[in-house]
Write a protein that binds this DNA or RNA. Structure first.
Lengths: 114, 114
DNA sequence: CTAATACGTTAGCTGCGACTAACGCATTAA
DNA sequence: TTAATGCGTTAGTCGCAGCTAACGTATTAG
């Protein structure tokens, strides 16, 4: 599996990325937040590393994983590239239909946002 | 597979969503844009329908698939929910590193997706 | 030193996702 | 009417993604 978006989309890996956004962490620490084994988490991390979304630093007998910023930027670009202008228009319509909450930020094509 | 992001992330289904963003289309028409069979495309569409991203309208002996706007809005929200503030900060740093254009409004020639 | 403990990875299994082939059903042609 | 063509879906196969169990390795206790 080489596809960036597909790799990042898997629920456990998504969660891993979010946890790592808080800061670097070991496999065991991360695994504590999941119902599955360390092994499973380790393999998810290896896959994330393979596509350049994370990297590891060895210290003692621990390996500290952390987000690879350039990779995450590529992920962001991939999603933005997927989310074409047509989709923006469609979703804007949908939001107008079923929301009494006046959209505060979301549909605004902010520079750093989206 | 019930996960919205995961369903949408698969490359063929991603492409289907993009094609449908241009307007409704039949299974056969859509399949023409892929190297795989009508059957495969039909099954991808059925899955997309199951999670509410598309819907179908029958006319003659054709079924016209089109995007479900509310579902696409949910997809957007799911991604925004995943992309936490921490990630925004990290990616902002990464963008600052390898580009003098900090805000990707112009079509960046980087993305190899799709 | 040896043994024990804890870390992360590799070996092996299983279920399910993605695909082609076979099918049912309409529509159109004869 | 019947036959033929084209539409989309269902039946069945295969490979691989995701998991647990077993392992290698390295630190720490004795």
């Amino acid at each position: 599996m080489l596809d960036l978006l597909e790799v990042a989309a898997e629920p456990n890996r998504r969660r891993l990325l979010q946890l790592l956004a808080r800061g670097e962490s070991t496999v065991t620490e991360l695994a504590g937040a999941f119902p599955v084994s360390r092994s499973a988490i380790s393999q998810h991390l290896l896959l994330l590393a393979e596509v350049g979304l994370v990297s590891a630093r060895k210290s003692g007998r621990n390996r500290y994983y952390s987000l690879e910023e350039a990779g995450m930027a590529r992920l962001r670009q991939a999603f933005d590239s997927f989310w074409t202008h047509e989709l923006d228009l469609l979703v804007a319509d949908a939001a107008a239909l079923n929301s009494r909450t006046p959209h505060p930020d979301p549909p605004t094509p902010q520079a750093g946002e989206l």
